[in-house]
């Protein structure tokens, strides 16, 4: 019973190990509580798919104009990769607002994580890492349903899943960083959805090609991560037609840069918030 007898079993789990522990926590939480969010991550994109792909698709099928817009592809097949990217973006945006603020403020689970050897930066990375896992899982479910509905033209659509994940996490990262700076949600989160997420989902070429938009607003589309993601995910899923290679590089660089900058910012804002 000497005082020196006390020896802690705790150790620092390492840089990636710490991130993995945070992802594990999110997974355990999800396993128990997934029903509450299944509607927004899986059912909602499927409803979109049914309404637009099947319903609206039947309306425009055989019309020369629709075929011209989709480059000859069936509307459902053309829409599917766009919806895949869109639902990843919506998951990324939603899960990086209220749940992040809750981690700081309402449930304070982030402060529990950083009471041990996990760093605030690892909490931020773990959050984004978990979102990537969740988007990939939801994406695969989505692809399976599309295939059942006859909207998959080939295995290429599987490759558009990681592209959708990249797009979703690229959107999630800066929003996560921003949420970490808020003391109360106030009007900020509704504003993000109203003025960023919804316009982005409507005008990023998900439902119709952006060249149908007036010349004047088209530059606005270029700053939409969802447009960049859709421009990559669609030819991959349909097996073409491929944009010029500088455009492909541009899309990838845009998304990667957004992800890198957003992640770096999130690590900073988490650190500032938790270490004070």
């Amino acid at each position: 019973m000497t005082a020196e007898g006390v020896r802690s079993t705790g150790r620092v789990p390492g840089r990636l190990g710490g991130v993995a522990r945070v992802v594990e926590n999110h997974w355990e939480w999800y396993r128990r509580n997934w029903r509450a969010t299944a509607v927004s991550t899986i059912v909602q994109p499927l409803l979109f798919l049914l309404a637009f792909g099947v319903g609206f698709g039947a309306l425009v099928r055989g019309s020369g104009q629709a075929a011209a817009a989709t480059g000859g592809a069936d509307y459902l097949a053309w829409l599917a990769p766009g919806l895949l990217a869109m639902s990843a973006v919506q998951t990324g945006a939603f899960d990086s607002t209220y749940p992040v603020l809750s981690g700081f403020k309402w449930q304070r689970t982030y402060s529990a994580m950083t009471a041990g050897p996990i760093t605030p930066g690892q909490v931020a990375l773990g959050h984004l890492g978990w979102l990537a896992v969740k988007m990939a899982g939801a994406g695969l479910v989505f692809v399976a349903v599309i295939a059942l509905l006859g909207g998959a033209t080939g295995a290429g659509i599987l490759v558009s899943v990681p592209i959708a994940v990249l797009t979703g996490v690229a959107v999630a990262a800066p929003i996560t960083a921003y949420s970490a700076t808020l003391e109360t949600e106030g009007a900020s989160f509704p504003a993000i959805f109203r003025f960023v997420v919804i316009p982005m989902t409507l005008f990023s070429g998900t439902f119709f090609p952006v060249d149908r938009l007036p010349e004047l607003v088209r530059p606005l589309v270029w700053v939409s991560p969802l447009w960049h993601g859709t421009e990559l995910a669609r030819p991959v899923a349909l097996g073409g037609p491929w944009p010029a290679w500088p455009a492909v590089v541009g899309h990838v660089v845009f998304l990667a840069a957004l992800l890198a900058a957003g992640t770096a910012l999130a690590v900073r804002t988490f650190t500032r918030r938790l270490a004070r």
Binding site: G10, R11, R21, R32, Q107, R108, S111, M113
Partner: peptide, 29 residues
């Protein structure tokens, strides 16, 4: 990694079980 902290305000994960709270917390260490 070697200390234990009981903060002034509880920060348990309310939507997990008692046991899960202990498991996951231990995993951080």
């Amino acid at each position: 990694a070697r200390i234990g902290v009981v903060p002034q305000l509880d920060n348990l994960d309310l939507e997990l079980t008692v046991r899960q709270n202990l498991h996951l917390y231990g995993r951080y260490f």
